[in-house]
Amino acid sequence: MTDTPEMPHVLSPRDEARVRFALKAERLSEEALDLLPVAPAAPRGERLRRALELKDLVDTLVERAVVAEREEGTTWAQLADAAGISKQAAHERWAPAVNAWATNGRAAFPPASGRSALEAARRLDQVHADRHPDHRADAVSSGLDAVRFPGAVAAEAARRERAAGLHARLAPLNDQLSTAYAEWSLLNDGGARPKARAAVLIRLAALNEEVAALHEELTGAEPELADEHRSSAEQARSNVASNREYAELLAAKAETEGVTK
Rank of each mutant, 00 (worst) to 15 (best):
W101R: 07
K253E: 14
R14P: 04
A100Q: 13
L118H: 02
L166C: 02
E224S: 11
P8A: 07
S113L: 11
D227V: 13
A137R: 05
N174K: 15
E63V: 09
M7E: 00
P172K: 14
A17N: 06
R44Q: 06
A213H: 04
R193I: 00
T219S: 12
D3L: 12
A68P: 08
E234H: 13
A247D: 00
V58K: 00
E228G: 06
L11D: 01
S231N: 15
S29L: 10
A39I: 08
P194M: 07
Q88Y: 07
L225Q: 14
A90I: 02
R148T: 09
A32M: 10
A171W: 13
K195N: 11
D59N: 09
R27T: 14
R193W: 00
A39M: 04
A206H: 14
Y181W: 07
R159C: 02
N99A: 11
L218R: 08
A254E: 05
P150A: 03
R197A: 12
A139E: 12
L170Q: 13
V153I: 11
P110T: 08
V200T: 11
V10W: 02
R203H: 12
V58G: 04
E248Q: 10
T74A: 06
L214D: 01
S29K: 02
V38A: 05
A182V: 00
H167K: 15
A80Q: 13
K24Q: 15
L173M: 13
M1L: 10
E6Q: 11
T75H: 09
N104K: 12
H167Y: 14
A89I: 02
D34Q: 11
G143E: 01
A139W: 07
E16I: 09
A39N: 10
E119K: 03
L124A: 02
A192E: 06
A22K: 10
P5W: 01
A198C: 13
L144Q: 03
A42W: 06
E245S: 10
D56S: 08
R197W: 05
S12P: 00
A152M: 07
E69G: 13
E72P: 01
E156T: 09
D15R: 04
K24L: 11
Y246A: 07
D15E: 09
D15G: 07
P13Y: 00
S242C: 07
A89V: 09
V211I: 15
A51T: 09
Q176G: 06
A251K: 14
V147N: 02
A68N: 06
S242W: 12
P223T: 03
A100G: 11
F149Y: 06
A77R: 13
R14I: 02
R169C: 00
T103S: 14
L204H: 05
A196C: 03
D227C: 04
G143P: 01
F109R: 05
A139K: 03
A192D: 08
G84W: 00
E156K: 05
P133E: 01
W94C: 01
A247H: 01
N208H: 14
Q88V: 14
P96A: 10
L57C: 04
A42K: 07
R44V: 04
L214A: 03
F21K: 11
A152H: 10
A182G: 01
A39L: 11
G220M: 02
D175I: 15
G114F: 03
V127D: 08
